[in-house]
Design a protein around this nucleic acid. Sequence first.
DNA 1: TGGAGAGCCTGGATACACTT
DNA 2: AAGTGTATCCAGGCTCTCCA
Length: 669
Amino acid sequence: MDQSVSSSSQVETVSCVEYFGPFSEELGISIEILNKFKYVVKEVLIGFICELRSFCHSEDQCISHLFALTEEKLDTKIQQLAEAKSKLGTYGIKNVNKKLKRKNENIKILTQDLKSKTDENEQLWEELGEKEGIILNEDVLREDSEKYKNEIDDLWKHLFEKEAQKHTLSEQQQILNKQKVALQKRVSLLNKKFEKTVNEKRILKEQHYIEIENFEYEKKDLIEQIKGLEKVNAFLEGYTIATFENGKYTNEVRECCMQLVTEGNVSLNKLPIVIKSVLKNLTGKLPERLPSKSLISSRLMVEAKIVACKQACEAMLTNYKPTEAKGNVLQQDATKKYHDHYEGMQVTLKDGSNLSLGLSKVVGGDAVTYTKCFNNIIDDLARSYSNPDQDSTKVKAKLITSIKCFLSDQCATNNVFNENIEKIRKDLLPTVIDNFDNLTENEKSAITKMGRFACRLHLLANFGTAADRALKLFEDSVTDSRNPFSFESDESGTFRLARTASKALTKRGSDKSGIGEFWEVFLKGRDIKNHLVTIHGHRINIAFHDCAAVYFNRNDILELLQDYPEPNGLLKSVLFDIKAKVFIAGARAMGMLDKLWAADGSEPFTGALMYDVSLLDKDYLYNELFKETNDPQLDSFTQIALELLCAQLQITLERQAASQLPGGSYWEP
DNA sequence: TGGAGAGCCTGGATACACTT
DNA sequence: AAGTGTATCCAGGCTCTCCA
């Protein structure tokens, strides 16, 4: 309770007994009375409260005690004041100054005296400390002296004993010294012998180095053979085949799974059944265990991809010579499925074999996207070929510079793509060819130049469209080609006939309106082969082929549909068109073009061929197409159609295959 | 007869646990 | 730490059944 209590209300609530009593002055309590009940208590010491409790037992008692105490104190002070006043009357200023001067001198003398006494005191304390230390040290030294004396006595005793033993040891030492010398001589002799043996061994090793090497190889081979034989033995003796070693599946099992999934098209779920079935039935044994579905799908397939990349990489870099005119050919094509765009890249190697480099889903069909895709694929190949901690940049450069040619379709984007890759390759050449910058411009140009080939397969597809246009012109010039049973379109009647016949008379045509099965039974009864194939799923020269088939079966189709009960719209359309001679002529002309190409529309009738006859497939269709018809109007229509078709196809050919025709860059490669 | 929906198969992916 | 297994989810394709 060392803080001040100044609130009167607090004092009133706290018992006064705790603060007032006869010990207050002795304990340094300072009390300031404000009025009868209001006062301030300061500097109350701990312990004071307990003693006061035994003295004062009520507030009134305490207050009365305090009052008496204060009254007494006041009387004393009044008396002291009266004495002081009387003394003050005897003092003047002069006396006061003299008194002060004397007091100061006394203070000075006393201060000096105090200082000297203090110094003396300190000195005495120091001396006292030293004396006490000496007294203490003397006791310790006395004890130590006793202790050391005893130890010295013990040591003397021990020394006497040792002295006694010394004579005995000396004799023994002499014997041991003799033995030591003998042993040293022996060691020296053995060292010489050892050195000699080592030298002899070294010389022998040098003399028989090749034989030793061969023995080492033989030893390794034999160990491998033993391991193999142990496996064979275990295989022959056991009922199970070991497929799991050192905590992982063996490479044989891994390869088996990869091959079955990637090449055998075996489902992951069926894989264990297939492997077990084959082993059990062919060898009578079962595998110890087989990898799970997820292991194969998520890990082994990744391994398979890396193995495939590595294989492609190794093949591309075999006989790598970027300075040569002959190199790898990069093939590239894109396709769409369900609105997704896919880009595939392959390579044709110097030996003519083909390898797939990668197939990626891409965001679009532009050259920038294809270039990025190419970079990613090459990156994958290079990283698969290099060690994980190895920089694959060099391998990537070699792979790109190993490409010397492009092969793609006629898409305009491919030109830009080819230019991009050509530029990348050009920039990389100095990093893979020593002194590339010192070569002549002609040499550089020869190395930098790349071949560009565009597949003309699209040309054949485009021939179909061109032929349709030509036939439309022909039909419009000789007849009204409209069909009341078909939908209005710009399609030629001949093409419509071929398409609707194919739709109605093949099994994969129209599910709703087709009679493919009925048609096949109808032809079988007449022992005639059905040459019609579906348009769906075919792209290239299917129009030419189906026109030939329609001409071949024209009479059968007519006969069937004329008697067909309640024909649907599709069948009515086919029946309408098959009766039109102009469409039959068009179909014949198309069929003739499918079989051969001629310089003049009349030549096919004479059998004059542009190409080697061995290329021609002289089948039933051919015989029917070139058979006498005894119908001059049909022959005339066919000739006109042929001439128009050839003219139209020539225009298309000259435009789309300009580089392969006279004057083009590949006319004389 | 054709369309809608359920059920199954399949592949791809991932988190987590276990074994060596 | 590496290798493997289990469980689970998702999406697409195919087949079968039901119903208008």
